[in-house]
């Protein structure tokens, strides 16, 4: 089906709702899904993959019951099926070690600190979405509304 997905993981429902509200403006072109745990997100990602849809961006909290954000993102990287997926750690509480591990082992693309601002969040997500579209060689025209123009321009110029 080739739909683009952004999957958000956080154990606090208020945070998830706030994230979903902030990303609502992307709704027309991408699917924003929220999950209360890493295991819920894993099931959802399986479905997305089974439907032939695309996992563009994963945003995860660090401190959660069960699997932590870094472990979840590391598992996702090791899975091998989603090499182009961009990974964001969104957290108010991460140790130096967690962060180093996230970058080295989970191949983190972005680190966002809580509390975030909507403007900043949307800009960052758009940049990552653009990178995903470019990396995957998708037709960027159909997503142009949710892409970051500068990133897109630079990406296209580098290609030629």
């Amino acid at each position: 089906m080739d739909r683009l997905y952004i999957v958000c993981v956080d154990d606090q429902r208020e945070v998830l709702n706030a994230l979903a509200d902030d990303l609502e403006i992307l709704n027309a072109h991408v699917e924003v899904e929220i999950c209360e745990s890493a295991s819920e997100a894993k099931t959802l990602i399986e479905e997305i993959d089974a439907n032939g849809d695309l996992l563009a961006v994963v945003i995860s909290d660090q401190v959660m019951p069960g699997t932590s954000g870094v472990d979840f993102l590391t598992q996702l990287k090791e899975d091998g099926r989603f090499p182009k997926t961009l990974k964001i750690l969104l957290t108010g509480l991460a140790t130096h070690e967690d962060t180093i591990q996230a970058i080295n082992e989970a191949g983190l693309d972005q680190y966002i600190e809580k509390p975030w601002s909507q403007e900043d969040l949307v800009i960052k997500i758009k940049k990552l979405l653009t990178l995903y579209v470019l990396r995957s060689g998708l037709d960027y025209q159909s997503f142009i509304q949710v892409l970051d123009q500068t990133t897109l321009y630079e990406g296209l110029r580098a290609r030629t």
């Binding site: 429902r13 998830l16 709702n17 899904e33 929220i34 999950c35 209360e36 819920e40 959802l44």
Partner: peptide
């Protein structure tokens, strides 16, 4: 408030 989990909602 919201009583449904994200999984139920989906």
């Amino acid at each position: 408030g919201q009583t449904k989990s994200t999984k139920e909602l989906r």
